[in-house]
Design a binder for these strands. Structure first.
Lengths: 203, 203
DNA sequence: TATTTACGATACTCACAAGTTTCGAAAATT
DNA sequence: AATTTTCGAAACTTGTGAGTATCGTAAATA
């Protein structure tokens, strides 16, 4: 399978020194790690360059601004995520997905999403990227799984699936962002049970 | 009833020109309005002073920094909020509360909370103020109402009320912050029904 | 080998905003 | 009237960080 970089290597190769793909990857990794650790605003371009062992001029050679770097880094990250479980057992799928998701958010990556949602409130470009790259693809995938269960009658046909997804994910994001109570597996278990209970017998 | 200002007037009154309480109020109103309109970071002290028809030196005469001004402004605002309904009809109370809350958030004040949650991610002082002034008092109040219904058996005794509150409010905050779908009364109605459905028959 | 393009290092410009200082006038007390 | 404290206006300092420009060097092609 060909990636973007390979296509670039083959078709765009000109005369001069080729782009350092390892440096590109180090810059993206560095941006991601820094946003996780210190947030969007404090992840300066100087710090990203330093940590990557690269130069600021290299960053601006390939990206128009800081937001573009971080957004591309998010894109790389997102493509590695676990798919929504689809075993045929609705309850088990939802439970498993929430456990995966909470483990993900309470791990190193949680702060990345807090930082993105925060930055999105003052930067429309970041907001759109977050919705398009993270929220929408994952919702689309989850929706397909839920649609199957709805067709099979395991989920009430009256329930709007977009609303159902917010019922499941909203409480998780809320605890992550507000921090008023711990975001642990037990919480995920209860939310899954409560939401399923509401969704299966709805109307 | 005596407010803070009256106490100040009586006990602290010295020789010189007294503090201008109207200017104080104008500064707080101005800070609130600007954070709503342009967010926390873009609400500069210069802009707050200008809009209040006051001077920056007056701001720094009474508050140690910008965050303190905005936090005190939030405090003033919070004390004016509608209480959680407590009519004896659980379903009606939850529906009414979510309708009130969504109307509140989609009005002028919604952006204030987006800005606060965003600022909280990079400023622990703001984060704590938001939890202590906004989240915790409202949760405490709502919890008392739900406890009553739980004692009356209208709500499953197995449901953890902290989790129940996140189930109800999480989806609302999530749509407000992520903006992937509209936050309208219809959504509030469905979340209330789904959550109640889950909570009443839990376990 | 000559040319081209990317590289890292570094100095630089530019904009912006927090917080300080100064000052003359206003509003209170003694 | 003299003193004290606050006020608004405005100039100022200080820090920061995004984005640019320069330069000598490295890695590719023709």
């Amino acid at each position: 399978m060909l990636g973007k970089e390979d296509l670039y290597e083959i078709s765009q190769r000109g005369r001069g020194r080729p782009r350092d793909e390892l440096a590109r990857q180090r810059i993206l990794d560095s941006a991601l790690a820094l946003v996780e650790q210190v947030g969007f605003a404090s992840a300066t371009t100087d710090a990203i360059a330093d940590r990557a062992g690269a130069s600021k001029s290299t960053i601006y050679r390939w990206w128009p601004n800081k937001a573009a770097v971080v957004i591309e880094a998010l894109q790389d990250q997102v493509s590695q995520e676990q798919p929504f479980p689809n075993t045929g057992n609705l309850r088990q799928d939802i439970h498993q997905q929430l456990q995966n998701f909470i483990a993900f958010l309470t791990g190193r990556r949680g702060r990345l999403f807090m930082a993105f949602i925060a930055a999105a409130q003052s930067d429309p470009e970041v907001a759109e990227a977050f919705r398009e790259l993270w929220i929408k693809p994952r919702r689309r995938e989850a929706r397909h799984v839920l649609e199957r269960y709805q067709r099979e009658g395991l989920l009430s046909g009256n329930a709007d699936l977009g609303t159902a997804l917010d019922l499941i994910y909203g409480p998780i994001y809320f605890r992550l962002l507000a921090g008023h109570a711990p975001l642990n597996p037990e919480f995920g278990r209860m939310i899954a049970d409560l939401a399923l209970n509401g969704l299966m017998t709805f109307k």
